[in-house]
């Protein structure tokens, strides 16, 4: 549905001598139809710039961006601010009518949208009377009122209390079940881990990891076996096509937990001593922190 290829974006630095800062460097990824994809990264990693490039708010220096023709889009900006003199109904009508919705269809669609965000009682109220969390939910309603194919949410959980967060979580989950394609940025890694089919980790304007659900599930089911470091051991493990990581004094071998006995037998047969066996318990959070710390090989993924 979306193809991003080799995207590069630089901006002018506000300095005495003009120079340019790279904010996106060779960013490539694909968003497939019906998938939920999240872009995570620290502040300034380039997440929002990628989204703004997809939406055409900014032009990349090079690279290509393709959005499937005829895709209807719903967008929730980060820290949204809407025309606060409008009522929620007027905001939804603005959103729906700009997508060509007919007046006759609007009441039903508006009702469905506000029900999903739990704001049925607020339709007639002005946005200026809304709290931050309510504004966020109003923004989500405006993004979904026209039933778009693709939803882009920039920090949808931001400013929400735990109840609101759970509501957004359920909403995205429901949209995913209805086959909608969702691309969103978030700092709430536990939600990302539970919701997404794919996770893109960005750091310093680059895509550092593109993980699939299988990668994450596999990472959680892995066990780490520590063996002493030697060229011979390295050779044996490479030949046997084991995934491992080299440390200064040992090698960490990553195997699926249900294959642990098989691996230990193999090591015994090859007379490789085992230093330790431990659950690797690789969570998205751990992978993320490794990427942020600029570790080149995070947990073999």
């Amino acid at each position: 549905m979306i193809t991003v290829e080799k995207l590069v974006k630089t901006v002018k630095k506000k300095q005495l001598l003009p120079s340019r800062k790279t904010i996106l460097n060779d960013v490539s990824f694909r968003v497939q139809e019906g998938k939920v994809i999240s872009i995570i990264g620290q502040n300034g990693a380039g997440k929002s710039t990628v989204i703004k490039s997809i939406l055409g708010f900014t032009q990349p220096d090079s690279g290509t961006l393709n959005l499937r023709a005829g895709t209807t889009l719903g967008y929730l900006p980060e820290n949204p601010y809407y025309y606060d003199y409008l009522t929620l109904r007027e905001l939804l009508w603005f959103s729906a009518s700009s997508f060509g919705m007919k007046k006759v269809d609007f009441p039903e669609k508006a009702k469905a949208a506000v029900e999903q965000v739990g704001m049925q009682a607020e339709l007639g109220n002005r946005l200026r009377t809304f709290s931050k969390g309510m504004t966020q939910r109003a923004g989500i309603a405006a993004a979904i009122v026209h039933d778009p194919d693709l939803l882009i949410f920039d920090e949808p959980m931001s400013g929400l209390d735990p109840v609101g967060r759970q509501m957004v979580f359920d909403l995205i989950s429901g949209l995913r079940d209805r086959g909608k394609t969702i691309l969103f940025c978030s700092h709430v890694l536990s939600d990302v881990e539970r919701l997404c089919d794919e996770v893109i980790i960005m750091h310093a304007g680059e895509v550092r990891r593109h993980l699939t659900r299988e990668d994450l599930v596999l990472a959680q089911k892995e066990t780490e076996i520590l063996v002493p470091l030697s060229a011979q051991v390295k050779q044996i493990l490479t030949t046997a096509e084991y995934r491992f990581k080299t440390f200064t004094e040992h090698l960490s071998l990553y195997v699926e937990t249900d294959k642990i006995n098989q691996t230990l037998d193999f090591l015994r047969r090859k007379e490789i001593p085992v230093v330790n066996v431990q659950s690797s318990a690789v969570t998205l959070e751990k992978i993320f922190y490794d990427v942020v710390a600029d570790k080149e090989e995070s947990c073999g993924l």
Binding site: K52, L55, G56, F57, L73, Y75, P77, N79, P80, Y81, Y82, Y83, S95, S98, F99, G100, G139, A142, I152
Partner: peptide, 13 residues
């Protein structure tokens, strides 16, 4: 300034 423009221009406008 308030970035409402993002909301408006993300519609077919």
């Amino acid at each position: 300034d308030k970035r409402t423009i993002y909301f408006v221009l993300s519609r077919p406008i």
